[in-house]
Nucleic acid binder design. Structure first.
Lengths: 217, 217
DNA sequence: TGATATATTGAACATATATTCAATATATCA
DNA sequence: TGATATATTGAATATATGTTCAATATATCA
């Protein structure tokens, strides 16, 4: 016999991980189409042919990455939803964390870029389009619900909660896209500026809140 | 003799315009690389070969479009700068117009998408990268100055004006990108939500102001 | 109408690159 | 150590598409 199943399985997963990371890095820089298989293989440190041992095509890698990215975003929104605080604090806290994450996490920026890229192109694999169709709106719906609860509570400004959710995510996404190509280290971002869009005046002062949770991994 | 210079010149300009529009529509949907010359030619209603009579390459069209797009954005920011009102009103008015434009102008959405696409890819022609390098920051600087003036005047919130300018444009850009693939007709956007990021409390009520100027053409 | 300059076409060419595949290497166990 | 299953390589293949070009159409003016 040769290697055990588990050993091969481990090699397989490691390789796939390396390939995914290499592909993500290339896709966000060059996009799906101008990224060549050779680019991914080189960055992953393997031969072109080996790539096909793990993924059937370039498209399949892309779909895998899109799925990951969407799940991460959804996971982040769920972790906000499930926080044990009032709606107002959920909004404030998540904005604080998201801005901090934009400043510090390359993975987050890559994730935003990849999703934006995919969302804005009709030239991506059908499977990727389906995933986006299916998952894209979940974070918007989660925030919408929180905004609604905050309005009932009297801590969130009036206005269509759908609209507030759109402003919430598009601000964050716009910022992430800007930051991914413009890491302006001289400017420190203050999340409270964004928070001012949603919180009524009396709720805007900074309060102490847990610093040990992370919204996005 | 054949046609006069002017007649040929006119045909030339008309054709180039048609080609540019077709290319913009395709680039925005598919990106520079997955857009084929044939796609552009078909949308423009001409043969592939003719395209090369007017543009030397696909890249050259792209560079032309990027240049247009950047100039439009810069022009919009200058028209705000040159308004005959106080800084606070400039911010309020331009946000009102920009949001309105996002809801109504496909050209504006396309422009934002094209610039975002170009800014986020290293796989675009060098000439396009140079143009972006050269022009991208102008609108940010214009808004930064206005924010600064508004702070002196006491109508704009405190904080690094560079940061405020970043929030200003990234919010608008994020919104435009979202809207270009999600024309949510059931949601009416209220620019005052964004304005709340920048204007101090007492300046936030709606005031009457000219409705006949347009920020972006 | 004929001469001429430019517009226009679409097939041919050149090239880039996704994918396949035959050959080789490697690791494990009997 | 030898058998074997999988990993790995890189050259060969197939295909897609950007670009060129020879041929044709068209519009104007003398």
């Amino acid at each position: 016999m040769a290697r055990t199943k588990e050993q091969n399985e481990k090699i397989r997963e490691t390789r796939k991980e390396v390939i995914r990371n290499a592909a993500l890095s290339q896709f966000v820089k060059q996009g799906l189409f101008s990224t060549r298989i050779q680019d991914i293989a080189t960055e992953a440190g393997i031969a072109q042919g080996l790539l096909y041992h793990y993924y059937a095509s370039k498209d399949e890698i892309f779909v895998d990455l899109i799925n990951d990215a969407l799940d991460k975003t959804i996971g982040a929104s769920y972790s906000v939803r499930d926080m044990d605080t009032d709606p107002c604090e959920k909004i404030r806290f998540s904005l604080e964390r998201l801005v901090e994450t934009i400043e510090n996490s390359q993975t987050f920026l890559d994730t935003c870029r990849l999703i934006t890229q995919a969302t804005n192109s009709t030239a991506i694999p059908q499977a990727a389009q389906d995933l986006i169709q299916e998952k894209r709106n979940i974070p918007y719906q989660v925030i919408e619900k929180i905004m609604e609860a905050g309005q009932k509570e009297g801590t969130i400004i009036a206005g269509d909660p759908k609209m507030l959710a759109i402003f919430f995510w598009t601000s964050i996404n716009g910022l992430a896209i800007y930051y991914s190509t413009n890491k302006n280290r001289e400017v420190k971002l203050d999340y409270r500026v964004i928070a001012a869009m949603f919180l009524i005046e009396s709720e805007r002062e900074d309060k102490n809140h847990a610093k040990d949770k992370t919204v996005f991994k």
